[in-house]
């Protein structure tokens, strides 16, 4: 690996239209946040794909460890009473 200092990596999130949430589009290298925004515009919205862009330096993102997937998410699996379909109601009940 070269020892040279490189432009840091940024993650790009694009909101496709007003009212929708920003979604991850991809990543790119840029010297700073302003440059990352300009480049994200050129790379990810050349065909009117967005109305707003977020850029976040990749190293600022803390991700869950795929190896801990079970211990993190498994506990939700047996809590079926958190879903509306768990509750049986008589047919006569409307609007619920």
């Amino acid at each position: 690996m070269s020892n040279k200092k490189n432009w840091p990596l940024w993650e790009v999130f694009v909101r496709s239209k007003a009212g929708l949430n920003h979604r991850h589009s991809g990543s790119l290298h840029a010297a700073d946040a302003e440059m990352a925004l300009e480049m994200a515009r050129d790379v990810y919205t050349r065909r009117s794909e967005g109305v707003s862009i977020w850029v976040v330096e990749s190293k600022s993102i803390k991700a869950s460890d795929p190896d801990n997937k079970d211990s993190l998410f498994e506990p939700a699996n047996d809590k079926i009473y958190r879903h509306p379909t768990f509750y049986d109601l008589p047919d006569e009940v409307k609007h619920m």
């Binding site: 200092k5 490189n6 432009w7 010297a31 700073d32 440059m35």
Partner: peptide
């Protein structure tokens, strides 16, 4: 160009 952009970003910071 890459070096200058990095130096400029650092100066701004």
């Amino acid at each position: 160009v890459r070096d200058a952009a990095l130096a400029y970003a650092e100066k701004k910071r």
